[in-house]
């Protein structure tokens, strides 16, 4: 079983790109199961179902969607096994730009929107810097010069990344992505994350809604950089 984890900024075209790649794999008689992780709502599962692949939907609700995806991976893998699939595709909703849900042997695909500005690659953190493939979408909406600068900035953050320029509407570039999926490694029984999830251990994490420091316990980082642990 191969596992592909697709992360990226909201609205960058993760689903569209993945759907085109799924169709290409299907033409090669390779079977995929898809898990879509989102927070509150999505109808992307219907779009995936139209391709004719088994789809599972996970809504993390009030939890971090990446955390939710990470500790549910073994269940997703066994579900994909029971579907007799060659691939498990996991599309995450990563929002805070601090997580990277890729595991060591998965194929990490970061989908990033070229219209979001040339500094975006520097802002998004580990889900780009630890990805195997950076898929750049919406390049047709900007000039060639802006596209080339965007590419350079991605390489600044992740010099090893393979960059694929893709179009979620026409499917351009998605054949190349499917080829990369075919070259991916097999996942092991004991996968490990490439990058640790962010530090967040305080009373906000368990539901406190008051805003000031005096109401909170745990690891609190102040805006001047000073960090302290408050509590027992």
């Amino acid at each position: 079983m191969k596992m592909v984890i697709v992360a990226g900024t909201p609205g960058s075209g993760k689903t569209a790109v993945l759907i085109h790649a799924l169709k290409s794999l299907k033409l090669k008689n390779l079977k995929s199961s898809v898990v879509k992780i989102d927070c509150l709502y999505t109808d992307d599962d219907k779009k995936f179902a139209k391709v004719g692949v088994p789809v599972k939907l996970g809504l993390s609700m009030d939890m971090c969607p990446d955390h939710y995806a990470i500790y549910n991976l073994e269940d997703m893998l066994s579900w994909a096994h029971s579907n007799d699939s060659d691939y498990l595709m996991v599309e995450t909703a990563g929002l805070c730009h601090r997580c990277a849900p890729y595991t060591i042997n998965s194929l990490g695909v970061c989908v990033i929107d070229a219209t979001s500005g040339p500094n975006t690659p520097l802002k998004v953190g580990p889900f780009l810097s630890t990805a195997d493939i950076a898929v750049v979408t919406k390049g047709d909406m900007i000039s060639q010069a802006e596209r080339e600068i965007f590419r350079e900035k991605i390489l600044e953050v992740n010099p090893e990344a393979k960059i694929i320029e893709a179009n979620g509407l026409s499917g351009q570039g998605c054949l190349e992505l499917a080829d990369e999926m075919m070259k991916a490694k097999e996942v092991s029984e004991e996968e490990e994350l490439r990058h640790s999830a962010p530090l967040a251990v305080c009373t906000l994490c368990v539901g406190e809604t008051k805003v000031n420091k005096k109401h909170h316990r745990g690891i609190l980082r102040r805006i001047d950089g000073f960090e302290s642990y408050k509590g027992e």
Partner: peptide, 27 residues
């Protein structure tokens, strides 16, 4: 290949000079 696409506007949020030097570096 050099391409002049149909786009009529820049989306990159930077100054003309900075943008051109970055592009010159890329090329």
């Amino acid at each position: 290949v050099a391409q002049l696409s149909q786009n009529m506007n820049f989306l990159a949020d930077m100054e003309v000079g900075e943008f051109l030097s970055l592009h010159a570096k890329c090329r």
